[in-house]
Simulated assay, not measured.
Amino acid sequence: MACSVLNNVINVFGKDSSAYFAMIGFVTASYIAFKVAFNVIKILKYFVFAGSTNFKKLGSWAVVTGSTDGIGKAYAKELAERGVNIVLISRSEAKLQEVANEIEKESKVQTRIIVADFSKGLELYDSIREQLAGLEIGTLVNNVGMNYPFHNYFLDVADREEYFMKMINVNVTAVTMMTSIVMPAMVERKKGAVINISSAGGLYPVPLLTVYSACKAYEIFFSRCIQSEYESKGIICQCVMPYFVVTNMSMPLLVATKKSKIVKPSLFEPSPTTYAKAALDSFGVSDFTNGYWAHNVQGTAMGMLPEGIVKKMMMGMAEKGRKANLENMSKKKE
């Protein structure tokens, strides 16, 4: 098929290679122009409709997993600012209570806490289901996540089989089971928001973070399928794919790639608070987003690059991060 098309092109242009390359240039330029225009329209749509969703009308409660630190905590606080009662789910009871107290003091909403270690697998979901029973849950934020401590080759990860199973339980089982538990009542009421915090690392293979990248790709496809299946039933499933945000989970990777001891929030590496506000403002505007305008710019730029270049970039960054972390670990031992 490809050879036939190529032969037809050669027959049309004959030996006039300049015309052939002009056509290739025109097609390439048209494609890039289309991509840029499409993303400009998305950005304009965001600024027009940002923050238009009234989460209180979806339901009086929101459930946020992984809500004691980073993006999850920021989402919980931002939803509370918008008048929604919050169910916080995480593994540390002390941290949960601390965040709950902060939210109730700052936003004057109700909170509940559920202690759950998502790395344990299926054994905890019956208890979660029971503790959520009877609540009018309009918003579910599947945020809980687990990453590598630093870039590393698949076979070099310490206790890899146990570690990888925990990672799959946290990143894959949790989003699947929590959606299964919470969404039926949303469908019955014909309204609800499911927000799945994936990662830009799920958009393309990220070597040396292999299992994490694969898990995040699962979240992306899971989200898009749920959106297709249940959009007609009043459910909006948004997949959010951040690049670097300054959190405890991403800090080791940020520090390594920058070779710096401290990473402060910046234009392309925002604080969790900045990121969560922007991402929530995008709900109802885009169901597939990087969540924050600077990350959307990064995503657009990456999407225009050939796969081979992206692959080399990812491997180069990963190797750099691994080397920096190994050097840091070696210095600490000395």
Rank of each mutant, 00 (worst) to 15 (best):
T65Y: 11
K77W: 11
F55S: 04
S107M: 12
F118V: 07
N54Q: 15
I103V: 00
Q110N: 14
E106K: 12
L88E: 05
A50M: 04
Q97V: 12
L88G: 08
G66Q: 13
G59D: 06
G70D: 12
S90A: 03
K77F: 15
G70C: 13
A94C: 00
A116P: 05
K73A: 09
N39W: 15
F38L: 11
K73N: 10
V87G: 02
L79D: 06
A74H: 07
L88M: 05
E102T: 12
G72C: 09
I43S: 15
F55Q: 07
W61S: 03
S67E: 02
A37H: 06
S119P: 04
S60F: 04
F47V: 13
G59E: 10
V64Y: 09
T111I: 02
V115W: 15
T111K: 06
V99K: 14
G66E: 13
Q97K: 14
T68H: 11
Y75K: 02
F55T: 04
L44S: 02
R91V: 06
S67L: 05
A94M: 01
A76I: 05
V63K: 06
G66I: 13
A116F: 00
S67P: 07
S52T: 01
V115G: 14
N54W: 15
L44N: 01
L96Y: 01
G51F: 01
A116V: 06
A37M: 12
N101H: 11
I113N: 10
S92H: 05
Q97C: 10
A76K: 06
R91T: 05
T53D: 09
Y75H: 06
F49Y: 14
T53C: 14
V99Q: 14
A80R: 08
K95Q: 10
K105N: 02
K95I: 08
Y46W: 14
F49K: 14
R91M: 07
F47M: 12
A94G: 00
I103R: 00
A100D: 10
A80W: 10
L44Y: 05
R112Y: 04
V64G: 03
D69M: 09
E81D: 13
K45S: 15
K42H: 00
E102S: 13
S107F: 13
V63R: 08
Q110A: 12
K77I: 11
G72S: 06
A116E: 06
G51S: 00
K73S: 09
A74C: 08
K42L: 02
I103D: 00
G51Q: 00
E78V: 06
I89L: 05
Y75P: 01
L79A: 12
V48D: 01
K108S: 11
S92M: 04
L58P: 04
Q97D: 13
I89K: 03
S60K: 11
V48E: 01
Q110E: 14
S52H: 07
K120R: 11
A50E: 02
T65P: 10
N85Y: 09
E98G: 03
D117I: 04
G59H: 10
L58N: 05
E78R: 12
I114V: 03
S92Y: 03
T111V: 08
L79H: 11
S52K: 02
E106I: 00
E106A: 03
S67H: 07
S90N: 03
G72M: 09
V40A: 03
V109G: 06
K120N: 09
L96E: 01
R82W: 11
T53G: 08
A116S: 09
L44T: 05
L44W: 07
K120C: 07
V109P: 11
E98K: 12
V64Q: 04
